[in-house]
Design a protein around this nucleic acid. Structure first.
Lengths: 112, 112
DNA sequence: CATCAGGTACGACACGCATCGTACCTAGGA
DNA sequence: TCCTAGGTACGATGCGTGTCGTACCTGATG
């Protein structure tokens, strides 16, 4: 019941290089595309993204996204919540989330 | 005197993953930041970017930028011209060049 | 033709990092 | 208390790729 929120750098301290490198990985980008496409910014769980990789690797990727400032993680002890830092990203890199959200509307990303 | 233009994929065929990977390298990103910041879209030479790397590595990077669709190269035989594919990028990834151009206005990128 | 500068081709190397195996931690429920 | 599911820590590994050395090509200049 600790609910400690883990955040990365402040909006102004985000670096374009590290952000782009984080987004160059297909699995991390898939996570960000889903988050960017959700206009309601719902909190997600790690499992809800259906990543075809092991638990350890998921930990690695979510940590990477957090450390560059794209998401924050809420620690519930035995599970974790994922939240997009939409307002911070919109301030620091306006247009970035729009590019990602557009990917969710491309045919090859339609899962239903 | 051949002046053959080498281009990558068409605008619609550009892939976000490969584009972001190309931009995750600091030297390629430095090139793109300069190109994006020039509102007149002047043709550049490879040397004009003052990259602190060898000729061979520059060839490698410019080829990478061309193959993902960000620039086109004009082959003059014993030298090469570099052009930003601004309109194609603006169609496929609106906002991307704005993010890059904003980097040119950051203090740590001020060279003069 | 000789020379030179810009650029490419090929190969080699070193480092980063995505991935996973094993082991351990945390909270909730039976 | 034990079990289970979600998550982390640490180490090992394999691949991608940024980098450069050497050699060669191209066009301009003298």
């Amino acid at each position: 019941m600790v609910k400690e929120t883990l955040s990365g750098p402040a909006a102004a301290e985000m670096e374009l290089g590290t952000v782009l490198r984080a987004l160059s990985d297909e699995h991390r980008r898939a996570v960000m595309v889903e988050l960017a496409a959700d206009e309601e910014d719902r909190e997600r769980t790690c499992n809800s993204f259906d990543l075809p990789i092991s638990k350890q690797t998921q930990t690695h990727h979510f940590r990477a996204l957090r450390e560059v400032g794209l998401i924050c993680e809420i620690d519930y002890g035995n599970r974790k919540g994922i939240r997009l830092r939409r307002s911070d990203i919109d301030v620091r890199f306006p247009g970035l989330l729009g590019i990602l959200a557009a990917e969710a509307r491309k045919p090859e990303h339609a899962h239903g």
